[in-house]
Amino acid sequence: MQWTDFLKGVVQGREYPNDPELKKKAPELIANCPAPCFGYSVVNQTTVNTEIKEAFPVTFSIALAALIMWLAGGVFFGVIAAVKKGTLLDRGIVAGALVFYAFPAFFIGVFLLKFFAIKWQLVAIPEYVPIADGFGLWLQGLLLPGLTLALLYMAGYIRMTRAFVLESMSEDYVRTARAKGLKSRRVLVKHSMRAALTPLVTLVGLDFAALMGGAIITETVFNYNGLGKLAFDANTTYDLPTIIGLVILLGTFVIVANIIVDVLYAVIDPRVRVG
């Protein structure tokens, strides 16, 4: 019965609590939850939709900031490491990336917060500001949490970019490009990197989707009310409707991200294009 109720809510929307007596006496206590309605959190006295609506922009902003930072850094350092393969610079980059990868998220988060924001006061103490309240403020609020996540993910991306670029540099078509007399920078950017970065698209899509529900620790450290923190709190308070709503939402993210990645792949690789 609960499931049919729940599904009915998803399709039609419903009211909480479903009590005609109460609605007559005190309509202000009735929460209206339009479709698709994921339920009502008794713990937080609000609909799950409202909770998600508030938390989603926070997490999305952090994930987006992290994505841009780790992708830029990962590709940049990865390509440098590949081009300078075997040199000290290459080894330094790979080792540095590994160090950040080895630290847990809470350590990097707390470290950045403690030293950058509090001790040295290089940046303001991070606080989430909606983008509507000012783009600059929004960016500022994302700097440290984004960086925390970016440093974690960057290590993997540096290593993968390095491996993919190295692999593509030994491809026959790169040799062809060199045999044409192209400048080495053009060979690298147009021929090597184009092929090397394609597999990253898949990874980026899936990592981003996973991050939408997985930034629990970072959000807790910086005390940002995002989806991760919402999920964490819901778990500790046995807030079942919220958990169900989040699971469905995050599952949807992964599926949608997969579809987007597939479509992107066709854009990048003409061989996959529909004939």
Binding site: E171, D172, Y173, R175, T176, A177, A179, H191, R194, A195, T198, I268, D269, P270, R271
Partner: peptide, 15 residues
């Protein structure tokens, strides 16, 4: 000096 390679499928960039 120009060169023609053995396997024209892998010697041309697929993209």
């Amino acid at each position: 000096v120009a060169m023609i390679f053995q396997d024209p499928l892998s010697a041309m960039h697929p993209y």
